[in-house]
Nucleic acid binder design. Structure first.
Lengths: 224, 224
DNA sequence: AAAATCTTTAAAAATTTCTTAAAAATACCC
DNA sequence: GGGTATTTTTAAGAAATTTTTAAAGATTTT
């Protein structure tokens, strides 16, 4: 299951009440009380955002952050009672997105979380005058006309759009779209071509799905 | 011109010293002392991120935020001495990305700004008026125009920039860029030349990629 | 001025991506 | 359950692009 938010904190009472409060306002939230629980969480689920305490029973939030950064880009907001500037700077430098001082106000934290979700949360919708991709309805329109894509094609397109502007390696695509089932570059080629045929006005000179030689592909769509 | 950061604050001393501090660490920063100045700034320039005070001489930061949100998605971080939770929640709800309490620590604020730039901004690993290098999108711009580099050329340039100012031996370049596959100095020569042709205004008198006789090459650049 | 090092150029070699068609796997319907 | 339609993968030659090689010219150092 995909949660909006995962709280990693060994102060069970605080974590639980925060999670409950979030849920009340429509932010689905899971809780992990330790590094270990966090790891097993990700074995089965995902989240769009992590609230991460620094002092944990079985280890250090900084280390977990570094570990996660190795394989995901998900926003990480640190929560901590530590007040030193050095801690804050380290947190931000190792890939944290924010540092929130404990004790925090539930209302402010929720607003903050919502702001991050709004900006970052896997938004793979896209729309310009020519192409429109609607993730909720799983539909794609070209010049207003619905275009039929297979489930896999749609997933591929969504992922590229979600990471619009960035170069996505083939490896990453197999990881994320094929869920690690690598079947060979030829597969990808063919799907990319079909996508191009479906959405590009001239598939031989793609404007949206651009090849980055020696690297992968990139979705290009007007500014940000 | 495109700045990394625009500070909008009527406390001139604070704004100026913050801007100066940022510049010192490679974040190009402009300052506007009022809503009006901010508007005229955007008439001619742009920024990747705004630090916005709430209490301004000629109006209110919240209003400016709403106004900007109408036409841009650029990250807005509020700066304010106001401590009320309500203010923070409003700031986040109207499209602000963060709320930073004054007085702030310059070091922490810089780390925060860099983190935001890294995630949302065109992460310019190098940028001056003439040349801009963006790792995330694997793109290089010369005088604002995208320049096409091969994957290897890009890797070479990135490495030189990463070690900007230091002399890099050919051996080291083969180690790091070619991953230890030594193919002969001729190879390197040719790639350096192509890079120069791509990014130097006069490839025969390189200003960025400088030859260090008997040693290797060095990237020279003032920006970040 | 000689020796060593760097630059330029063009063409060969190697690599990567594209295209196409057909085979295999999967889902769907009666 | 059998047959059909759809989707996904495989495979192989063609096309495009990148990288290396090599040789001649230029520059710097000693």
């Amino acid at each position: 299951m995909k949660y909006n938010c995962l709280i990693v904190d060994d102060e069970k009472l605080l974590a639980d009440s925060t999670a409950e409060y979030f849920s009340l306002f429509g932010v689905t939230t899971a809780v992990a009380y330790s590094l270990d629980e966090c790891r097993s969480f990700f074995a089965e689920h995902t989240a769009e955002l992590i609230l991460l305490d620094i002092n944990l029973g079985d280890g250090n939030g900084f280390d977990l952050c570094r570990e996660l950064r190795g394989r995901t880009d998900i926003p990480i907001l640190f929560l901590s009672a530590r007040t030193s500037d050095d801690d804050k700077i380290v947190a931000l430098n190792i890939g944290g997105d924010d540092y929130i001082q404990k004790p925090y106000s539930l209302g402010v934290l929720l607003a903050k979380v919502k702001a991050v979700l709004k900006r970052y949360g896997g938004v793979s919708d896209f729309s310009d005058g020519y192409l429109r991709v609607d993730t909720r309805a799983k539909q794609v329109f070209v010049k207003g006309n619905a275009v039929k894509l297979t489930a896999l094609e749609f997933k591929l397109l969504s992922y590229l759009i979600e990471r619009k502007g960035k170069v996505i390696s083939k490896q990453e695509l197999f990881e994320k779209v094929w869920e690690d089932k690598f079947t060979g570059d030829g597969t990808l080629n063919v799907h990319i071509r079909r996508l191009r045929e479906a959405i590009e006005s001239n598939p031989n000179e793609p404007k949206y799905i651009v090849t980055v030689w020696g690297d992968g592909y990139k979705f290009v769509g007007g500014g940000r």
